[in-house]
Simulated assay, not measured.
Amino acid sequence: MYPVTLTSSTVSLREFAAPDDVDAVLAIYGDPRVTEHLSFEPRDRTQVEATLTSATKAARGEPRTEYSLAAVRPTGDVIAFARLAIDTQHPGQNSGQIGFALRADQWEQGLGSQVVELLLRLGFDELGLHRIWGARSPDNHASRRLMRKLGMIEEGRIRDHLLVRGRWRDSIVHSILEHEWQPSPSPASSER
């Protein structure tokens, strides 16, 4: 499925356009506030360029197993890096993992929920997945609230899951199944 465009009333997901989106992604991935609960430290320009090069290449893969998308406001401003990765370790299991990073100046406006809801729409409505899951830092309480709000169930803790900043960190896993998915009443439009 390429290109992907999903739209809600205030946020859209679209394919990344490297190198045009480098500065916007650097404002997200280069910010220590944003990466505090992620699995990596703030990235520099070279690392962001490599990330976008990889994302745009993966977007044209056959079959496509990674959807790294720009979350944008109606103004065109990139406000988040959104990702859905299809599970290739267990073919036929029909599941995917989501993740996102929202620009710090966009926090506390409900935009993270809209970004994740669009990822869930992509996974369930467009790709026909059965299960979608995400993992968060135990200290990321905003992510916990967001996933619960969207109907994702907390499954448990993976102990010493990631080595981040020289220390082992646990991850808390949340998931939602296709029959549990309840999109918000305001329909998002989609284009392929």
Rank of each mutant, 00 (worst) to 15 (best):
I79L: 02
G30I: 00
F16A: 02
A104D: 10
G156I: 06
L120S: 06
I132W: 05
T7H: 13
S171Q: 06
G156A: 07
V116W: 03
R157P: 05
G76F: 08
P74Y: 06
F16N: 10
E155R: 00
Q89S: 13
L6P: 01
L102C: 02
L122K: 01
R83V: 13
S8W: 01
Y67S: 03
R159D: 09
T75D: 07
A188D: 10
R148E: 14
S186T: 13
R83N: 15
Q93P: 15
P138D: 07
A85M: 13
E126I: 12
Q89I: 15
F124Q: 01
E191T: 14
A17V: 15
P185I: 14
S143R: 03
L146A: 03
G134Y: 01
I79C: 00
T7R: 09
V4M: 01
M152L: 03
H179L: 14
V72D: 09
K149T: 15
L6E: 07
A135T: 14
I153Q: 14
R121A: 11
E154G: 08
S143Y: 05
N94I: 10
S113A: 05
H130Y: 12
P187E: 15
N94A: 09
M152A: 05
T35Y: 03
W181N: 04
D31Q: 04
L127P: 07
R136W: 09
L129I: 03
E36R: 10
A58V: 10
H130N: 08
P187G: 13
T56A: 02
T65D: 09
T65F: 03
E180R: 02
Q106K: 14
I132L: 10
V115A: 02
L118F: 02
G61R: 04
N94E: 12
S68V: 15
L119A: 12
P74L: 05
L13S: 05
D44G: 01
G151D: 07
D125E: 12
R60D: 14
D44T: 09
